[in-house]
Simulated scan of single mutants.
Amino acid sequence: MAGLCEGRVVIVTGAGRGLGRAHALAFAAEGARVVVNDLGVGLDGLPGPESPAAQVVREIEALGGEAVAHGGDIATPQGADSLVEAALDAFGRLDTLVNNAGFLRDRMLVNLDEDDWDAVMRVHLKGHFLPLRAAAAWWRAEAKAGRPVAARAVNTSSGAGLLGSVGQGNYSAAKAGVLGLTLVAAAEMGRYGVHVNAIAPAARTRMTERAFAQTMAAPEDGGFDAMAPENVSPLVVWLGADASAGVTGRVFETEGGRITVMEGWRPGPTADRGARWTPAEAGEAAVKLLAAAEPPLPAYGSGPA
Protein backbone atom coordinates (compact mmCIF):
# COMPACT_ATOMS: atom_id res chain seq x y z
CA MET A 1 0.00 0.00 0.00
CA ALA A 2 2.86 2.38 -0.86
CA GLY A 3 1.73 5.89 -1.74
CA LEU A 4 1.78 9.57 -0.94
CA CYS A 5 1.71 8.97 2.83
CA GLU A 6 3.96 5.94 3.04
CA GLY A 7 5.40 5.70 6.56
CA ARG A 8 3.26 8.46 8.04
CA VAL A 9 1.05 7.99 11.10
CA VAL A 10 -2.30 9.73 10.84
CA ILE A 11 -5.07 10.41 13.37
CA VAL A 12 -8.58 11.04 12.07
CA THR A 13 -11.27 12.04 14.57
CA GLY A 14 -14.90 11.14 13.95
CA ALA A 15 -13.64 8.51 11.51
CA GLY A 16 -16.31 5.88 12.00
CA ARG A 17 -18.65 7.26 9.37
CA GLY A 18 -19.04 9.83 6.61
CA LEU A 19 -16.14 12.15 5.83
CA GLY A 20 -13.94 10.79 8.61
CA ARG A 21 -14.28 7.21 7.41
CA ALA A 22 -13.54 8.29 3.84
CA HIS A 23 -10.43 10.17 5.03
CA ALA A 24 -9.17 7.21 7.07
CA LEU A 25 -9.56 4.80 4.16
CA ALA A 26 -7.95 7.26 1.74
CA PHE A 27 -4.93 7.78 4.00
CA ALA A 28 -4.54 4.02 4.41
CA ALA A 29 -4.71 3.57 0.64
CA GLU A 30 -1.75 5.97 0.37
CA GLY A 31 0.34 3.98 2.84
CA ALA A 32 -0.43 5.71 6.14
CA ARG A 33 -0.95 3.91 9.44
CA VAL A 34 -4.18 5.26 10.88
CA VAL A 35 -5.66 5.88 14.31
CA VAL A 36 -9.42 5.74 13.81
CA ASN A 37 -11.18 7.80 16.48
CA ASP A 38 -14.93 7.62 16.94
CA LEU A 39 -17.05 7.89 20.06
CA GLY A 40 -19.96 6.14 18.32
CA VAL A 41 -22.60 8.77 19.01
CA GLY A 42 -25.73 9.80 17.17
CA LEU A 43 -26.37 12.98 15.22
CA ASP A 44 -27.18 14.76 18.49
CA GLY A 45 -23.98 13.64 20.20
CA LEU A 46 -25.61 11.02 22.43
CA PRO A 47 -24.01 7.56 22.71
CA GLY A 48 -25.08 4.87 20.28
CA PRO A 49 -25.10 1.09 20.77
CA GLU A 50 -21.51 0.57 19.56
CA SER A 51 -18.66 2.52 18.05
CA PRO A 52 -18.02 2.02 14.32
CA ALA A 53 -14.28 2.72 14.70
CA ALA A 54 -13.43 -0.98 14.92
CA GLN A 55 -15.31 -1.65 11.69
CA VAL A 56 -13.23 0.97 9.84
CA VAL A 57 -10.07 -0.59 11.28
CA ARG A 58 -11.20 -3.95 9.88
CA GLU A 59 -11.83 -2.34 6.48
CA ILE A 60 -8.32 -0.89 6.45
CA GLU A 61 -6.76 -4.18 7.53
CA ALA A 62 -8.71 -6.03 4.82
CA LEU A 63 -7.02 -3.73 2.30
CA GLY A 64 -3.61 -4.61 3.70
CA GLY A 65 -3.16 -1.51 5.86
CA GLU A 66 -2.50 -0.90 9.53
CA ALA A 67 -4.90 0.84 11.88
CA VAL A 68 -6.03 0.99 15.50
CA ALA A 69 -9.30 2.18 16.99
CA HIS A 70 -9.69 4.87 19.64
CA GLY A 71 -13.04 5.42 21.33
CA GLY A 72 -12.19 8.29 23.67
CA ASP A 73 -13.98 11.64 23.91
CA ILE A 74 -11.59 14.05 22.20
CA ALA A 75 -13.43 17.05 23.67
CA THR A 76 -11.90 16.20 27.05
CA PRO A 77 -8.22 16.68 27.94
CA GLN A 78 -7.94 13.02 28.91
CA GLY A 79 -9.51 11.83 25.67
CA ALA A 80 -7.37 14.11 23.50
CA ASP A 81 -4.17 13.16 25.31
CA SER A 82 -5.00 9.46 25.06
CA LEU A 83 -5.63 9.89 21.33
CA VAL A 84 -2.05 11.05 20.75
CA GLU A 85 -0.80 8.36 23.12
CA ALA A 86 -2.67 5.75 21.07
CA ALA A 87 -0.70 6.75 17.97
CA LEU A 88 2.60 6.71 19.86
CA ASP A 89 1.87 3.40 21.58
CA ALA A 90 0.79 1.65 18.38
CA PHE A 91 3.16 3.18 15.84
CA GLY A 92 5.83 5.14 17.71
CA ARG A 93 5.15 8.50 16.13
CA LEU A 94 2.54 10.97 14.88
CA ASP A 95 2.73 12.90 11.61
CA THR A 96 -0.77 14.10 10.75
CA LEU A 97 -3.89 15.05 12.70
CA VAL A 98 -7.22 15.40 10.90
CA ASN A 99 -9.84 17.05 13.13
CA ASN A 100 -13.22 16.00 11.76
CA ALA A 101 -15.56 14.92 14.60
CA GLY A 102 -18.83 16.77 15.06
CA PHE A 103 -22.62 16.70 15.25
CA LEU A 104 -25.57 19.05 14.87
CA ARG A 105 -28.27 20.48 17.13
CA ASP A 106 -29.94 22.91 14.78
CA ARG A 107 -32.34 25.57 16.07
CA MET A 108 -33.35 29.06 15.03
CA LEU A 109 -31.62 31.59 17.27
CA VAL A 110 -34.68 32.41 19.41
CA ASN A 111 -35.19 28.68 20.09
CA LEU A 112 -31.54 27.80 20.64
CA ASP A 113 -31.03 26.89 24.28
CA GLU A 114 -27.76 27.01 26.17
CA ASP A 115 -27.29 23.25 26.28
CA ASP A 116 -27.51 22.95 22.50
CA TRP A 117 -25.10 25.88 22.11
CA ASP A 118 -22.61 24.39 24.56
CA ALA A 119 -22.79 20.86 23.12
CA VAL A 120 -22.04 21.96 19.56
CA MET A 121 -19.31 24.38 20.58
CA ARG A 122 -17.77 21.64 22.71
CA VAL A 123 -17.50 18.98 20.03
CA HIS A 124 -16.58 21.19 17.08
CA LEU A 125 -14.39 23.85 18.67
CA LYS A 126 -13.06 22.26 21.85
CA GLY A 127 -12.86 18.99 19.94
CA HIS A 128 -10.45 20.70 17.56
CA PHE A 129 -8.46 22.59 20.17
CA LEU A 130 -7.66 19.74 22.57
CA PRO A 131 -6.35 17.18 20.02
CA LEU A 132 -4.44 19.95 18.25
CA ARG A 133 -2.87 21.06 21.53
CA ALA A 134 -1.90 17.50 22.45
CA ALA A 135 -0.38 16.81 19.03
CA ALA A 136 1.37 20.18 18.91
CA ALA A 137 2.98 19.58 22.29
CA TRP A 138 4.50 16.32 21.06
CA TRP A 139 5.67 17.88 17.78
CA ARG A 140 7.26 20.80 19.60
CA ALA A 141 9.08 18.44 21.95
CA GLU A 142 10.37 16.47 18.98
CA ALA A 143 11.61 19.63 17.27
CA LYS A 144 13.30 20.87 20.44
CA ALA A 145 15.00 17.50 20.82
CA GLY A 146 16.55 17.99 17.38
CA ARG A 147 14.44 15.41 15.57
CA PRO A 148 13.06 16.52 12.17
CA VAL A 149 9.34 17.31 12.14
CA ALA A 150 7.19 17.49 9.00
CA ALA A 151 3.82 17.46 10.71
CA ARG A 152 0.43 18.36 9.30
CA ALA A 153 -2.91 19.27 10.87
CA VAL A 154 -6.09 19.53 8.81
CA ASN A 155 -9.08 21.14 10.51
CA THR A 156 -12.67 20.90 9.35
CA SER A 157 -14.67 24.08 9.04
CA SER A 158 -17.76 24.59 6.87
CA GLY A 159 -19.46 26.98 4.52
CA ALA A 160 -21.58 27.76 7.58
CA GLY A 161 -18.44 29.07 9.27
CA LEU A 162 -17.50 31.13 6.23
CA LEU A 163 -20.92 32.61 5.46
CA GLY A 164 -23.30 31.64 8.25
CA SER A 165 -26.25 29.28 7.92
CA VAL A 166 -29.84 30.00 8.95
CA GLY A 167 -30.90 27.75 11.82
CA GLN A 168 -27.30 26.90 12.67
CA GLY A 169 -26.07 29.72 14.88
CA ASN A 170 -24.18 27.35 17.19
CA TYR A 171 -22.64 25.34 14.35
CA SER A 172 -21.74 28.44 12.32
CA ALA A 173 -20.07 30.09 15.30
CA ALA A 174 -18.09 26.94 16.10
CA LYS A 175 -16.95 26.48 12.52
CA ALA A 176 -15.94 30.14 12.27
CA GLY A 177 -13.94 29.58 15.45
CA VAL A 178 -12.16 26.66 13.78
CA LEU A 179 -10.93 29.08 11.11
CA GLY A 180 -9.48 31.44 13.71
CA LEU A 181 -7.85 28.55 15.55
CA THR A 182 -6.32 27.33 12.27
CA LEU A 183 -4.72 30.69 11.54
CA VAL A 184 -3.26 31.00 15.04
CA ALA A 185 -1.95 27.42 15.10
CA ALA A 186 -0.32 27.87 11.69
CA ALA A 187 1.41 31.04 12.87
CA GLU A 188 2.56 29.58 16.17
CA MET A 189 3.62 26.09 15.09
CA GLY A 190 5.42 26.80 11.82
CA ARG A 191 8.75 27.20 13.60
CA TYR A 192 8.48 23.58 14.76
CA GLY A 193 7.81 22.13 11.30
CA VAL A 194 4.03 21.96 11.64
CA HIS A 195 1.67 23.05 8.84
CA VAL A 196 -1.97 23.73 9.76
CA ASN A 197 -4.77 24.19 7.21
CA ALA A 198 -8.55 23.94 7.11
CA ILE A 199 -11.15 22.64 4.71
CA ALA A 200 -14.78 23.66 4.28
CA PRO A 201 -16.27 20.55 2.67
CA ALA A 202 -19.67 19.84 1.20
CA ALA A 203 -20.59 16.17 1.10
CA ARG A 204 -23.32 13.69 1.95
CA THR A 205 -23.02 12.69 5.61
CA ARG A 206 -25.40 11.94 8.45
CA MET A 207 -25.32 15.66 9.25
CA THR A 208 -26.26 16.85 5.75
CA GLU A 209 -28.34 14.16 4.10
CA ARG A 210 -31.44 15.10 6.10
CA ALA A 211 -31.04 18.87 6.20
CA PHE A 212 -30.22 19.09 2.47
CA ALA A 213 -31.82 15.89 1.23
CA GLN A 214 -32.43 16.97 -2.38
CA THR A 215 -29.01 18.58 -2.84
CA MET A 216 -27.15 15.67 -1.24
CA ALA A 217 -28.96 12.81 -3.01
CA ALA A 218 -26.88 10.44 -5.13
CA PRO A 219 -27.67 10.56 -8.86
CA GLU A 220 -30.14 7.91 -9.95
CA ASP A 221 -28.54 7.55 -13.39
CA GLY A 222 -25.25 6.29 -11.99
CA GLY A 223 -23.35 9.43 -13.01
CA PHE A 224 -20.70 11.25 -11.00
CA ASP A 225 -21.81 11.40 -7.37
CA ALA A 226 -20.69 14.93 -6.55
CA MET A 227 -21.75 14.70 -2.92
CA ALA A 228 -19.94 11.46 -2.07
CA PRO A 229 -17.65 12.10 0.93
CA GLU A 230 -14.84 10.28 -0.88
CA ASN A 231 -14.52 13.31 -3.20
CA VAL A 232 -13.23 15.45 -0.32
CA SER A 233 -10.57 13.05 0.92
CA PRO A 234 -7.93 13.45 -1.83
CA LEU A 235 -7.28 17.07 -0.84
CA VAL A 236 -7.20 16.12 2.84
CA VAL A 237 -4.66 13.37 2.12
CA TRP A 238 -2.46 15.76 0.16
CA LEU A 239 -2.64 18.37 2.92
CA GLY A 240 -1.67 15.62 5.37
CA ALA A 241 1.33 14.50 3.35
CA ASP A 242 4.93 15.68 2.95
CA ALA A 243 3.93 16.81 -0.54
CA SER A 244 2.07 19.84 0.87
CA ALA A 245 5.29 21.42 2.22
CA GLY A 246 4.99 25.22 2.31
CA VAL A 247 1.18 25.26 2.42
CA THR A 248 -0.05 26.48 5.80
CA GLY A 249 -2.66 28.82 7.24
CA ARG A 250 -4.92 28.31 4.22
CA VAL A 251 -8.60 27.45 3.89
CA PHE A 252 -10.01 25.37 1.03
CA GLU A 253 -13.60 24.82 0.01
CA THR A 254 -14.02 21.42 -1.57
CA GLU A 255 -16.95 19.45 -2.96
CA GLY A 256 -17.38 17.07 -5.86
CA GLY A 257 -14.61 17.82 -8.33
CA ARG A 258 -14.14 21.44 -7.22
CA ILE A 259 -11.41 22.91 -5.00
CA THR A 260 -11.42 26.62 -4.11
CA VAL A 261 -8.86 28.59 -2.12
CA MET A 262 -10.82 30.87 0.20
CA GLU A 263 -9.24 34.29 0.60
CA GLY A 264 -10.92 35.39 3.82
CA TRP A 265 -11.27 38.85 5.26
CA ARG A 266 -9.22 41.49 3.44
CA PRO A 267 -9.36 45.29 3.78
CA GLY A 268 -11.83 46.85 1.36
CA PRO A 269 -12.73 50.51 0.77
CA THR A 270 -11.35 52.74 3.54
CA ALA A 271 -11.81 56.34 4.65
CA ASP A 272 -9.46 58.05 7.12
CA ARG A 273 -9.99 61.68 8.06
CA GLY A 274 -7.14 61.77 10.55
CA ALA A 275 -9.45 62.94 13.32
CA ARG A 276 -12.51 61.73 15.24
CA TRP A 277 -15.77 61.37 13.33
CA THR A 278 -19.11 62.54 14.60
CA PRO A 279 -21.78 59.79 14.48
CA ALA A 280 -23.45 61.47 11.49
CA GLU A 281 -20.15 61.84 9.65
CA ALA A 282 -19.20 58.23 10.42
CA GLY A 283 -22.53 57.10 9.01
CA GLU A 284 -22.12 59.19 5.86
CA ALA A 285 -18.63 57.77 5.33
CA ALA A 286 -19.85 54.21 5.94
CA VAL A 287 -22.61 54.58 3.33
CA LYS A 288 -20.07 55.75 0.73
CA LEU A 289 -17.70 52.93 1.57
CA LEU A 290 -20.47 50.32 1.35
CA ALA A 291 -21.43 51.65 -2.08
CA ALA A 292 -17.87 51.00 -3.26
CA ALA A 293 -17.54 47.60 -1.58
CA GLU A 294 -18.27 44.14 -2.94
CA PRO A 295 -21.68 42.91 -1.72
CA PRO A 296 -21.48 40.06 0.83
CA LEU A 297 -22.48 36.56 -0.13
CA PRO A 298 -25.75 35.49 1.51
CA ALA A 299 -25.82 33.13 4.47
CA TYR A 300 -26.94 29.62 3.60
CA GLY A 301 -30.71 29.37 3.77
CA SER A 302 -31.33 33.12 3.48
CA GLY A 303 -31.77 33.36 -0.26
CA PRO A 304 -30.18 36.01 -2.51
CA ALA A 305 -28.57 39.05 -0.92
Rank of each mutant, 00 (worst) to 15 (best):
A185N: 11
E114Y: 06
R191D: 07
W138Q: 14
V123H: 02
S172E: 06
L163W: 02
D221K: 08
V178S: 02
L132W: 00
R140T: 15
D116E: 15
A186D: 06
H128N: 11
Q168G: 03
A173F: 00
G222P: 02
A174W: 01
G167C: 10
M121N: 09
P131K: 07
A213N: 06
A176E: 10
R204I: 07
E209L: 09
L179K: 01
V184F: 04
G180P: 01
P229L: 09
L109M: 11
P201A: 15
L163D: 00
A203H: 03
A151K: 01
W138V: 11
R122F: 00
A150C: 08
E142T: 14
A134W: 01
A153W: 00
N155A: 09
W138K: 14
S172V: 05
M108H: 07
M121C: 04
A186G: 03
V178M: 04
F212N: 07
R140W: 14
Q214C: 04
Y171L: 10
K126W: 00
R133A: 15
L183M: 13
K144W: 03
V166E: 06
Q168T: 05
G169R: 07
A218H: 05
E142Q: 15
H124E: 08
T182A: 13
W138E: 15
Y192L: 11
A185C: 14
G169T: 15
R147D: 00
G146R: 10
N170S: 12
A198V: 12
A186W: 01
P201V: 14
F212Y: 11
V110R: 13
T208F: 04
R140C: 15
M216A: 08
V196R: 09
A200H: 03
N197P: 12
A145H: 00
E142Y: 01
T156V: 13
A213S: 14
A136R: 08
M216D: 08
M189T: 04
M121H: 14
N155V: 03
D118F: 03
R152V: 02
G159D: 09
P131D: 04
I199Y: 01
A186Y: 01
L181F: 14
R107Y: 06
P201W: 08
M189K: 02
P219W: 05
N155R: 02
M207C: 12
A151C: 06
A145T: 06
K144F: 03
R191Q: 13
A135I: 08
A217D: 14
R204C: 04
Q168K: 09
L163F: 08
K144D: 15
V184Q: 09
A137M: 08
A202E: 00
D106L: 10
T205C: 07
D225I: 12
A137Y: 01
A135S: 13
K175W: 12
A119L: 15
A173N: 09
D225V: 08
G193H: 03
V194L: 11
E209P: 00
L109K: 02
S157Y: 00
W117D: 09
D118K: 12
D221L: 13
L125P: 04
L130D: 03
T208H: 05
A198G: 12
M227V: 02
K175L: 10
V196A: 09
P148M: 14
F212G: 05
G193Y: 01
V123L: 12
S158L: 13
